[in-house]
């Protein structure tokens, strides 16, 4: 649901962007302070699929949390789906996440007692949509990720790969402006991991904007664009020619 009007005086990001990070730093006030992000700027265009790669501790998860408005940067600004995070209240950030951002986590984070269908329907829980409609959309999303035959399976009975498909369906069910995935294949074996990466590529082909964080360079290099992070700074930002 996009409107054409630009917020007067809104940051001068070019149209066609879903996410813009502007000179963001993140300092954790520990002793000594940790500069997890030391000045990062990054734009993600509509329909883009990009991999963020870097060694452990380089700030990847911190970056994802900042992009997903789960954390506010120490300095700099983040603009998601046209909204500047620095100008929004905590409640408004929740609304932004409910409607415009989808998350996929390494640990899946499914509710164990729930069916696959209800786990995916929960992706729409805080939008105020009625349960019946949520389930209907969830069923479509599950069919899309190849789990049409698993709708009524409880989460505990699913394999790791199936769990991650459910989590991906949950992230996508509300057609968010951007999907942020933190190590989505980190808990999966190589073969399952490959199939999940293929699913992500398919969803990208259908128009979804996706950021995938991984410490696996091979996976990151498969994507059209690869951003390398080191010590809280962008080391390289490459378009991969063969896509």
């Amino acid at each position: 649901m996009t409107t054409t009007a630009l917020e007067p005086g809104s940051p001068s990001a070019p149209p066609g962007l879903v996410l813009s990070i502007q000179d963001v730093t993140m300092v954790y006030p520990t002793e000594p302070p940790v500069h997890a992000l030391a000045g990062v700027s990054l734009d993600v265009g509509e329909g883009e699929l990009l991999g963020v790669v870097g060694p452990s501790g380089s700030g990847k998860s911190t970056l994802l949390h900042v992009m997903g408005t789960l954390d506010r940067p120490t300095t700099g600004d983040v603009i998601v789906a046209g909204h500047s995070v620095s100008s929004l209240s905590d409640r408004e950030l929740s609304s932004l996440r409910a409607r415009h951002i989808g998350f996929v986590f390494q640990q899946f984070h499914l509710l164990n007692g729930y069916t696959a269908l209800d786990n995916v329907a929960d992706g729409l829980l805080y939008t105020g949509m009625a349960l019946y409609d949520r389930r209907e959309m969830a069923a479509h999303a599950l069919v899309r990720v190849g789990l049409g035959s698993r709708l009524m399976h409880t989460a505990t009975k699913l394999s790791g790969g199936e769990k991650q498909r459910v989590a991906i369906a949950r992230a996508l069910v509300g057609r968010p402006a951007i999907v942020l995935a933190d190590e989505p294949t980190g808990n999966l074996d190589t073969k399952t991991s490959d199939s999940i990466v293929e699913l992500i590529e398919e969803l990208h082909d259908e128009g979804a904007s996706i950021v995938v964080i991984t410490h696996n360079r091979d996976i990151a290099k498969r994507f059209p664009r690869t951003v390398s992070l080191r010590d809280g700074l962008i080391e390289s930002d490459l378009q991969n020619g063969d896509h």
């Binding site: 649901m1 409107t3 630009l6 070019p14 046209g82 409640r91 609304s95 805080y126 939008t127 105020g128």
Partner: peptide, 23 residues
Amino acid sequence: MAKTDLAPSRLHFGDLGRTASVG
């Protein structure tokens, strides 16, 4: 960047019962 609408997060009363009974 096109600014999207931002209707507040909402939880239906019926869903409140569902979430409260998860545990």
